[in-house]
Structure formats: C-alpha cells, structure tokens
Design a protein around this nucleic acid. Structure first.
Length: 837
DNA sequence: GACGACTCAGCTTA
DNA sequence: CTAAGCTGAGTCGT
C-alpha cells in the first residue's frame, strides 16, 4: 500500500464533513481551536487540533479505550504508511475527516495512579499493534517507547465518549465516498457492507508530526492537558410553547406560529440572556443567504462536541446509535410479542423467546453494534447506569456476549483476560452496596440432563479454565472488567413478575484484585474473585435512591405530594439547587374542556372480558384490528392515534385496551434543575414502552391560545404529527410492519397547563428525549382533541430526567438542489447538533 | 392472582 | 460437532 499527498484532496473528503468544515470557517473557527499537550516528562508535544492533525475513521477491531483515570496516550507502530500533507498520515482505504479534535481530558492528570492498569498489548490485524497502556511489553520484558515505535505516527486512544462520528448525509445508505470506501476495502463485499459499516463503531486515530515528540524515553507518554475551547451552549430556561405536540421523537416542520426568541423566556436568568446576546453579536455569520432564522442560530446549533462538561457522557453520535439499536430491538420485541398475543391460545408458540427473535432480526439486517468485536474497557455509547431487559441486548451491543455465561473474555497475546461479568445471583455472590464485589467462578454446579436418559451431573470442583482462568489472569494484568448486575438481585427492589426477569444494569469498570478457592455450598471447591469498582465513575442511581430512602429527611424536599392525593402515587417536589418552591397551580387529573365543548363518549364495545384481537371487538377494530399495547401495557409503536376502550365498554378495567386511563404507575417527582427550571424524573426504573403520564390542562382553541402569550410556557399544541423514521426502520427490519404515513394536521386546539395541570407540565424539552407524546382517545371520540400521553422510548434508569421533544422552533436547511438536508433545532441544549435522527 | 420450584428449549461461543 | 453456561418462558402446586 502506498499513499500520496493527493489523498488530502478535498474531493475525497466526505461531503458532510466538508460542509461542516466550511461552516467552521465561517466566523466561529476561533472557538473550535484547541491544543492537546502530550508529555512524557522530558519533552512535551503540542497538537494544534485544527491544523496539525487529521482524523481517520477506521473499523474498530478490539481494545481501544482507557479506563477512567488513566491518562495515557499510546503508541502504535504502523507499517506501510507515509506522511501526507503536513506530515499527516493518510491511508488509502480510509476516509479522511478533518474536524476539531474531540479529546476528552482523559482523566485528571494521572490523579489515580494506582488504577492505571498494567500494560496490555493485543495483537490485532496483521499490520498493527495497539498499545493501550503506558508502557509496552514484549515477551514479558519492558521495552521503551522508542523501541516500540518504528514508524512514528502517534495514536491517541480517545476515551470512548469523545469519539465523534459525523452524521451521514443520506442516512443509512451512506455517502458516495463511504460506498467507495466499502468497495475499495473489499471487506464485506456483500450487500451488508454498506449498511453494516454504517453501524460499525469507528475508531478515530490521530496522527501527529513525525519527530515532534522525543520518544526516546522510558517514561510513558501522557496526555497531560487538554485545552479545548468549546462554544458555550445556551440553555433555554424553562419551557416554551410546544408546537405541534404529538410526534414520534421528532417533528420537523418549521413553526408557522410564534417563534420564540431566546430572550423572551421569563425564566431565563439575566446572565444567560447576556451570554446569549453576546454570543449572538460575536458570531459574524453571514454565509447563509437563504436560511432565515437558521442563520442567526447557526453558531449555537451547529455545535461540534464536546459540548458537555468534560467527563460527562458526551459522544452523542455513537450514543444515539446505541439508543437506536436498542429502540429497534425493543420495537421488534414488542411487535413479535404483539403478534404472538394476537394468536388464539392453541396456536401460540410455546416458550417463544422475543429476545432471541429480535436479536436474530437485528443481526440479519446488520443493525448490531460491535459484531464480531471484542472490547476491553468501556463500550462506546454505553454508559454506566444503562439498563437492559435481556441478556441478548448486551450481546447485540457487545457489552457481554455470552447469552447465559457469566464471564466473557478475550485473548490478549498469549493470555485470556476477562472483559465482562454478569452478577445476577446465580451463585452465592456477595453483592453489597460497597465498591467491592465478590464473584463466584463458573462451573461445578449440578447440570441438568440435556437429553432423556442422560444422568444429572453431580457437583464438582470448579476448574481453572475459560472464564475462571480469564479472571485469574485479570488479577495480575489489572485490566478493567465490565460488571453487569442483575437488577432484581442488585436493587432488591422488584418483586412479582419483575423479580423473574428484572433486567440488568451496567455498573461500570472493576479491577479483579484477588482470587481464592473455597468450599461452596455443595461441598466442592469454587473460585472466588474480589473485584473493586474503579474510581471516578458515576454512582448508580438506584443506590442513590436506596440511600435516600433510608434517610428520614429527604434532601431538598419541598412538598410530599404536589397532587395532594389526586394521583394514585404521590409526586414529591425536590429542590437541592436553591430556595425556590414549586410553582403554584391547580393540580388536576382530568382535562378541562370549555363550556361549549361537550365531547361525546365513543361507541362502546361489548366484550365481557379483556378485549383481544381474536374477538370481534369494535374498539380493537378502530385500531386497525390490533391492540397497540402488549399485554404488559407497553406501547408497541408510535401511532397517529390510539383508541382505548371507553367508560361504557363492557370490558373490565384490566382490559389490554385500557392503559393510559389507569393513571401513573411510576413514582415520579419534580425537581429543580440547574438551568431548565423544574423537571420530572422517576424513582423507579422505567422499561421502554411504558406509559408515563398525560399532559393535562385546559383545552383551548388555537385562537385563544395565541392570546395567552404572557404565559406560554405551558401550552401544548395538539396535532397529528407523526414522524415515522423509527417506524420505517422497523418496517425495514420486519417486512409486514407498515410504517404509517407521515401526517401533518393542525387540530386547532391547544392544551394550556398554566393554571390547571398535572405533572406533565413540568417535563422539559430535549433534543435527545426519552419520552414521546402519543395521541390517545378513550372518553370521547373527537379526534381533534385527543389526550396527549407520554411513553418511554428507552429504558430509563431512576433519577434520569424525563424529556420529550417540544417540536417547536425547528428549521430545515436545504441543499443547493432544494432537498432537505439537515434539521436545525433551536433548543440550544448541550449536545444538540441540530440533527434529529 | 402471587410466588417459588421445577422443567425445558434455546443461543452463542469455545 | 458438542458441550457449557449467573436465560427466560411455561407449568404446577401451595
């Protein structure tokens, strides 16, 4: 392979990124410059993030990331590379990206010396060696950096949450250059390659000038300082008028109505306002002749991460891909379950595993992450505290591959090292609240006969092989091990149906400190491992909840129940920020309709028991012949409108077609946020698809709503607006799943929750929301004024703020041919890059 | 129903 | 190809 200077030519640069690049040069370049300083004590080395480096995107094969607190750069000898322009290394089959660098301040400068793992070297592809620890070892002997480096590109292992991927211009199809890459590389070659690649995690490799850093030192190279200026994000304080409320996680029409200005919010503090105005003045953006309001906000919204505080989650692109994968997974699960539930009893498939079925579909369509990849350390896009319902999801995401086995491991050099374990109570583990976890090795248990006539295997001593051996090796290698806890076992919270399948929580990285053998309950020897959670990782929210439950006095508690008994569960108000009390309003659990409006109850069904698809039920028929919920109450997919059974239906209250009318079922609380007024969160884990609450208020006509501008924070425009992007994704996965047509329909009504309302009025906007608003009818039949119901799009861990997309202030940017290219959002929320997937 | 004990069909990887 | 494995769903008894 040889590479010429010409490869730097812009013609090869991904179109999207070149657009981005040009936007960078338009006035805001200065903001995106930064420097990264590398040092090994004797010499330091500065990289100008704007000019001095280029980014390459490569397929990730294996180990990449440092555990938190480990501030090290690694060196990777690469053969067959030549310096390109400015000494940058360019490789033929790689797309070259230019961008601001997105390097997290990989921990504080080596603040946790003890947690820095021993060097681990892993053999990868034929031509490269990745080193992800301070020093290189070869055959057990230390070698210096200089010895390890023959050619001198410097590879900086980026922490996983700073790896940035650019939005693909044409969605899943990939751009021309991407296609070219796929063809040229010859990998895959099949039709999977294009879409499969799109979903692969990519590594970004940073190459620096040759010879800039004196590597002839035995000391490790460390990322010492990151000085990266980030454009300040402007927080939208409080709430705004929600435009075109009902949509599935995005609705993208530019509002025809009032376009709120940033300065308008009554809740915006002066400092924020000043900051905004200053930012706006300073941004001399004039290169957007045809984009109206978009232009003004461009500098705010086309933001390049890191747009969050260093150390917070970040990496929205990969994160959103992980989320999308999970949404597709759950969508498939619920659809399969729905189909199953619709069958008459004798035709139901016994013991159908929706998790297996969903995974099969995702895999066949190349929608998995990290397939065939083994990852040591953090998995890109997966964050501590993430919850899963099935083991299979963790397989699909590469978090933990065995579908049953508790220990996952990989070969690193000659050794096998543990990469992840699942602690869910299958053995006598000690899973207390501290950062120490005692884990039992695998094997030795009584094994059931697999076939008839086979005898049960008696318990025996555990053997030092496979998972056990990997964990033992990890003691000396000190490599990070992901720990996943079984939820019911970890939290001891759930009971009943949930206890049987409580799901899993990603607990973060641990180090295996020691191991020993002891006699287990069956009298045979078992291995025991002591793992300690690595410092610097966020505390799990269920632990926080559990702690606060123990306290007599809840920190920041303002009110025990803002609903004053009107909801089935109390809703507390918590303010740990300042002295503000929750705003005054009248709590109602029923919509208020104007006097002239007398909604008529819908036609009732006569089902004597819970309505099913098999029966000829008129309510089911209204939903197109299917029940839009699973029997456990999860919404199968977003619909333009869902018809539930009404007050005069004969079916019982437990009917599968009565979900939202039964009220809230999670313990919600309102809490004061740092910058967005009050928000809503749950003390329980919320599984994807669950009903959360309604948006309740006074129903007013739009004309009336326009008059109520003095307090428009609590207005929610009712409308049939349905973005079917996920539904399209689903129909691609599962032929026969029909995506509903995109509908835009002004209903003419608005819900005003300023005076009368419920907890729904406190839910904030987000561009990466975890809820969506669903139109539902049950107590009347007027489609112009459906109830607005919030459902969870993801598994939501306790204490995570609930949010939905307000769908207001959205603009579209068109390319030269007039095609809608990008949607620009005005929310100003951190991490929003104006792309609503 | 609720819950535990038991059974059994899976699936992925080594 | 086979076996192992901290699943998950169903069934039955209390």
């Amino acid at each position: 392979m040889s590479f010429g200077m010409g490869m730097m030519d812009n013609s090869l640069v991904h179109t999207e990124s070149s657009k981005l690049k040009s936007s960078l040069s338009n006035g805001s370049e200065e903001k995106r410059r930064g420097t990264l300083v590398l040092t090994n004590g004797a010499s330091s080395f500065k990289i100008d993030l704007m000019n001095g480096i280029k980014f390459k995107r490569r397929k990730v094969f294996a180990v990449r990331d440092f555990p938190p607190g480990c501030g090290s750069a690694a060196v990777m000898p690469r053969l067959d590379v030549e310096a390109g322009e400015n000494g940058n290394v360019v490789e033929e089959d790689d797309k070259v990206e230019s961008s601001s660098a997105l390097v997290k301040g990989v921990g504080e400068p080596n603040d946790v010396e003890s947690s820095v793992p021993e060097p681990v070297v892993t053999e990868k592809t034929n031509d490269e060696l990745i080193v992800f620890a301070p020093e290189v070892q070869e055959n057990g002997n230390d070698v210096t950096m200089a010895e390890a480096v023959e050619v001198k590109p410097l590879r900086i292992c980026l922490a996983n949450d700073v790896v940035r991927d650019f939005p693909s211009e044409t969605g899943s199809k990939g751009s021309e250059s991407e296609k070219k890459v796929a063809e040229d590389s010859g990998s895959g070659g099949s039709d999977v390659s294009s879409s499969g690649r799109e979903n692969m995690v990519r590594d970004i490799v940073v190459y620096a000038d040759e010879g800039s850093l004196d590597l002839n030192q035995s000391e490790p190279v460390k990322v010492e300082k990151l000085n990266f200026r980030v454009p300040k994000s402007i927080h939208v304080a409080g709430r705004r008028k929600a435009k075109k409320g009902v949509a599935f996680h995005s609705a993208l029409k530019r509002s025809k109505k009032i376009k709120p200005e940033y300065g308008e919010s009554s809740r915006m503090r002066n400092s924020e306002r000043d900051l905004y105005l200053r930012e706006r003045e300073n941004s001399d953006v004039d290169d957007y002749p045809d984009q109206g309001v978009a232009r003004r906000n461009r500098v705010l919204n086309v933001m390049i991460p890191p747009s969050r505080p260093i150390g917070s989650s970040g990496n929205d692109s990969i994160r959103s891909k992980v989320k999308e994968t999970l949404r597709l997974f759950y969508g498939a699960c619920r659809k399969i379950l729905q189909e199953q539930e619709a069958l008459p009893k004798d035709k139901k498939k016994k013991g159908l595993r929706v998790d297996f079925e969903a995974a099969k579909i995702l895999k066949s369509k190349g929608k998995c992450h990290n397939e065939g990849v083994q990852i040591m350390g953090p998995v890109p896009g997966v964050e501590v505290g993430d919850e899963f319902q099935y083991r299979m999801e963790m397989n699909v995401l590469g978090v933990h591959r065995p579908t049953q086995g508790g220990i996952d491991y990989m070969k690193v050099g000659e050794d096998i090292l543990a990469t992840s374990i699942v602690a869910s109570g299958g053995y006598d583990d000690e899973l207390d609240n501290s950062d120490i976890l005692t884990y039992t090795g695998q094997g030795g248990n009584i094994v059931q006969a697999k076939k008839k006539g086979e005898e049960l295997k008696e318990p025996e001593d555990q053997k030092l092989k496979q998972g056990n051996l990997a964990l033992v090796n990890s003691v000396t290698k000190k490599n990070p091990v992901r720990v996943i806890r079984g939820k019911n076992h970890a939290t001891l919270e759930s009971s009943g149906r949930d206890a049987k399948n409580g799901g899993y929580i990603y607990d973060g990285l641990y180090l295996v400190e020691e191991f020993w053998q002891e006699t287990g309950s069956h009298g045979k020897l078992v291995f025991k491992f002591k793992l300690r959670r690595m410092p610097g990782q966020p505390e799990l929210s269920w632990k926080v909840v559990k702690k606060s439950k123990k306290l007599k006095y809840r920190e920041g508690l303002c009110k025990l129940d803002i609903s004053e008994g009107r909801e089935c569960l109390p809703i507390s108000a918590i303010n740990e920020i300042d002295d503000e009390k929750p705003p005054q309003f009248t709590y109602t659990v029923k919509m208020t309709y104007p006097d002239w409006c007398r909604p008529v109850p819908p036609k009732a069904c006569g089902c004597p028991t819970r309505c099913t698809e098999a029966r000829n039920c008129s309510c089911v028929a209204k939903n197109g012949g299917e029940i839009p919920y699973n029997y456990d109450g999860a919404v199968v997919s977003a619909k333009t409108l869902i018809y539930e059974c009404g007050p005069f239906c004969k079916c019982p209250a437990s009917c599968y077609l009565r979900v939202t009318q039964r009220g809230i079922k999670f313990k919600l609380e309102i809490f004061k946020t740092e910058s967005r007024g009050w928000g809503v969160r749950s003390l329980n884990s919320i599984p994807s698809g669950s009903f959360i609450c309604e948006y309740i208020g006074e129903l007013v006509e739009d004309a009336e709503a326009e008059k109520r501008t003095s307090n428009d924070e609590y207005l929610f425009d009712i409308g049939n607006k349905y973005d079917n992007s996920l539904a399209e994704g689903m129909s691609e996965l599962m032929p026969g799943t029909k995506a509903a047509p995109s509908i835009e329909d002004e209903s003419g009504f608005t819900i005003d929750a300023a005076i009368k309302g419920n907890v729904g009025r406190f839910i904030n906007h987000s561009c990466s929301p975890n809820l969506y608003a669903q139109n539902v009818l049950y107590d009347h039949g007027d489609t112009r004024m459906p109830h607005v119901m919030f459902f969870a799009m993801d598994n939501i861990p306790p204490l995570q703020e609930l949010s939905y997309h307000y769908n207001y202030m959205i603009d579209q940017v068109r390319d030269s041919k007039g095609n809608i290219k990008k949607k620009i959002c005005y929310c100003g929320s951190s991490g929003c890059i104006g792309r609503l997937y």
